[in-house]
Design a protein around this nucleic acid. Structure first.
Lengths: 202, 202
DNA sequence: CGTTATAACTAATCAAATTAGTCACGTCAA
DNA sequence: TTGACGTGACTAATTTGATTAGTTATAACG
């Protein structure tokens, strides 16, 4: 019974490999164990179960994402910083499709760690946008819209939602630039809105 | 052995009920069978398996969504139509969280039916936007951005991604109005610093 | 050199999906 | 009327994956 030098980190790395190569749904204890050349129950020496492993994936993914975003924004401010952040976000989602998917299921987050890291990312964006001339109330709306575009775009891209020949990169750049121009425009939307739509039904 | 009057539609409706009430991941053949008071294998008389059932959910959800969007846009055009479509989209996602989730996994779509319905929805938006003064190339970008915001917002809302006290309805309205203003602005983003001749569109 | 914690193992259980084969009921034609 | 047949339910058994319990070998440490 040779002891393989396996620890929690190794299990996590294997899970990431499977998630990014074959898809998050292929991350099973059986599959992980096979890649590590051990039997499934042995994994319980390193993780508490499949849910725990999923949680580890989410936290690790969020920390990677946060780190890449922070790195990309170093030394930049204003529009350039926003573009850099957006590109870092999309870059991560494309480079690690499975890991990214793992970060998008807040329902399975077990600890506050994931929650915290997720909020960290938002604060990072808030800090950059703080220098924009925005009403405080608008800030929340803008941040939410920004997050929606980032996540929505990443999600549609991952799920092959864009069939057209026009390159997704170009569309993404367009969307970010579009939002930035709106933010800097003289008339914030809520003042100029003439036609009040009915509020979304619940 | 009394014959229950169960058909494929009944199985589907039960699956929808479970998905919306308890979450998509609780849609198992066992759970569906229990609600219908039959044994699990009996379901194979009506659906081909769990994957087939998931596919049925996706197609049905997309058709509902498309119908509600089309209904909401009747008699409207321009900004009003866009707002109506956006609200219908969000309304559906909130009223049928599980069913909506089922529509967001193109990977499991088995037939071309889902693909077709999904494209239908996009064409619907394209038709409304066709009357806006947009360059043809910009149209694709705008549509993609619009879809990203819709899906991203719905997704974040469903996953409780918005913690702040400010109401999500308000943020959503803001985002849509924000985009519409951008679309109607004189300087589209990608050519902002240059002078721009209006391109005719259909 | 022996004690001990660790990290592997085997064996067994549980849950869910699935397959094969069986059986009762209703319909329709002879 | 009756009997063949199809439908839709069933039971039994298999497969896959997660999990638990209990066992054992290795390595590190006193």
């Amino acid at each position: 019974m040779a002891k393989a030098c396996i620890d929690t980190a190794a299990v996590l790395q294997t899970a990431i490999l499977i998630a990014d190569k074959k898809g998050l749904s292929y991350v099973t204890l059986k599959e992980v164990a096979q890649r590590l050349r051990i039997k499934t129950p042995s994994l319980y020496n390193h993780v508490e179960g499949i849910e725990h492993l999923n949680s580890l994936l989410a936290v690790y993914g969020l920390k990677c994402l946060r780190a890449e975003i922070a790195e990309a924004a170093i030394g930049l401010s204003g529009n350039k910083a926003i573009h850099a952040i957006a590109n870092a976000y999309m870059g991560f989602a494309r480079k690690h499709p499975g890991l990214y998917e793992a970060t998008q299921r807040p329902g399975i987050w077990q600890d506050k760690d994931a929650e915290q890291t997720s909020n960290d990312i938002i604060h990072l964006v808030e800090k950059v946008m703080a220098e924009f001339p925005l009403a405080k109330k608008d800030m929340t709306h803008i941040i939410r819209m920004f997050r929606s575009v980032l996540h929505g775009f990443a999600s549609l891209l991952k799920n092959k939602g864009f069939a057209k020949p026009i390159r997704a990169d170009e569309s993404f750049c367009f969307a970010i630039e579009f939002m930035l121009q709106g933010i800097h425009a003289k008339h914030p939307p809520e003042q100029a809105s003439r036609e009040r739509p009915r509020s979304p039904t619940s």
